[in-house]
């Protein structure tokens, strides 16, 4: 018998701090496998966000730096421009990328910085206790919308792929999910492509990954992955939003 699947080299042996069933762990593993397959571990630099993934520098077995909340695309811009031969990516939640960091996100895309952005959309601020995020869907109950998100009061859920598709600079935008095997396989393909684009000097690529946050959704892991199929993906349709 041969070992056919095991922990990728681009992950350290440190156990991450995510809650049981959280999608962050699956997404880390997929990124690590793509980096291994592309053979770029020695020249990869990640930028960790503020959010549950704040300790990503402990979990990835390559260089990772930390940015202030929402600022990873700005830090990635600096690193990539100074060290253009490195593979530079940001890893950001929806609070980080689509609330406090919207400005950097839109301009990095519009300038077509040659970076890869992994955007984890779990519809809440996970780390701080499940408050409403820009991506919280209508009527969704969170710590700050106990009666459900009211569009009149709280505004509309922000559709990042749709928004960035309007920028001249974004070259690849796809929304995927990690709630079942089929979607996980598609996520792997999308993330690999987003890195390959950077290696080919194509410009700004972003993969939006819908990800389960069972604890803050008040669900079991099993319920959370089902809710994604039944509800979440209906509000955030999966698919390619731009590919040039």
């Amino acid at each position: 018998m041969n070992k056919i699947l095991s922990r990728p080299e681009s992950l350290t042996l440190i156990q991450h701090s995510y809650c049981p069933g959280c999608g962050h762990g699956i997404i880390h593993r997929i990124i690590a496998e793509c980096i291994d397959e592309l053979g770029v571990r020695e020249k990869t630099i990640g930028i960790a966000p503020v959010g549950c993934a704040v300790f990503a520098y402990d979990y990835f077995n390559f260089d990772v730096t930390e940015a202030a909340h929402g600022r990873p695309p700005a830090v990635a811009t600096g690193i990539k421009r100074v060290l253009p031969d490195r593979v530079v990516f940001t890893y950001q939640g929806d609070g980080d990328l689509a609330a406090i960091g919207t400005n950097e996100t839109v301009h990095a895309a519009n300038r077509s910085e040659n970076i890869t952005v992994i955007f984890v959309n779990n519809a809440v601020y996970g780390m701080t206790g499940g408050q409403m995020a820009p991506t919280t869907i209508e009527k969704q109950k969170t710590a700050t919308t106990p009666f459900g998100r009211d569009i009149k009061r709280d505004g509309y859920p922000l559709k990042v792929c749709e928004l960035l598709a309007a920028t001249g600079g974004a070259v690849y935008l796809e929304r995927v999910a990690v709630n079942n095997i089929k979607n996980i396989m598609k996520t792997r393909k999308a993330i690999k492509k987003a890195f390959q684009n950077q290696i080919d000097n194509k410009g700004f690529s972003l993969v939006e990954v819908l990800s389960q946050c069972p604890v803050n959704w008040g669900m079991t892991p099993k319920e959370s992955v089902k809710w994604m199929d039944d509800v979440f993906v209906k509000h955030f349709p999966l698919g390619v939003y731009k590919d040039i």
């Binding site: 018998m1 056919i4 699947l5 095991s6 922990r7 990728p8 069933g21 762990g25 996980i184």
Partner: peptide
């Protein structure tokens, strides 16, 4: 390998 693919802890190894 489905179990490996979905395990958030990456604590499963598959042998074939």
């Amino acid at each position: 390998g489905f179990c490996y693919q979905i395990c958030p802890e990456v604590c499963i190894e598959v042998y074939k």
